[in-house]
Amino acid sequence: MSTRITYREAVREALREALAADPRVFLMGEDVGRYGGCFAVSKGLLEEFGEERIRDTPLAESGFVGAGIGAALGGMRPIVEIMTGNFSLLALDQIINTAATLCHMSGGQFHVPLVIRMGTGAGRQLAAQHSHSFEGWYAHVPGIRIAVPATIDDARGMLRAALASPDPVLIFEPISLYNMEGEVTEAASAVRLEGAAIRRPGRDLSVITSGASLWKCLEAADALASEGVEAEVIDLRMLRPLDDAMLLESLARTHRALVVDEGWRSVGLAAEVGMRLVEQGFYELDAPVARVCTAEVPIPYPRHLEEAALPSAPVIAEAARRLVGHAK
């Protein structure tokens, strides 16, 4: 049995299920209640669960994220929504200095079972203070787990898995996917907070990506298939911990790797993934690891410039062609 819903509805269903299942769970953030969430994710939840559990907060990211940490320490299972990754920088102190450190600094006495959800990425013409992709940045930090649901099943299932984690989990929801429609399958109920996933098998190269870029990579893979090139598309799903084993397994089959990331190229996620392949899979490589990343600019407002800045299916396909041709 399957149902066709939007990504937004999948997250909302996950929230509803979590709130209904566990009285310790509550949602707080800016405009999550009466407004229904800045991307309308939590619409209707206030009416269903009331003000105690669907809490509108002041515009105080550090304050309410820190309060989420405290509430988690105090026995609750808070879900904190931050409107966008850019705004999460106002809560960076609490996320990095407190949530990520408490377990270790306390010698394992205290845990922070906090889930922070935030919108990430570009594609909605929201310009340079709403559109950036910081999930790779956050993945630099030990003590937190970084999840990036790219599919309807993951949007539906990752929250439950995150709430079951005793550690802080940051879920990055690509804002360009909220309107995407798809099926919720049985797999959604078995979603785990670990491991990458092969979204399209292939033998000629491994295309490794996450978030909204997954769909551009799949589009590129379709184009490549018509040319006889079979790309294996891997969705990282989790940026911390990274699933090295699956990446290396894929590389052992394809011997070529292209990393696609909506973050910037310099000192970023794509560099980390590429380096892991080189460190652990150098002798499997028939060509240098290649990357397609966002141009090194703050994301601009006009549609054509925003599109030019981001990885696109044609650019990904072209990079794949170069990679496959390289050793021929």
Partner: peptide, 11 residues
Amino acid sequence: LPLAVGLALAE
């Protein structure tokens, strides 16, 4: 300070 607010909220 935010931590204390959250601990109090949990209470």
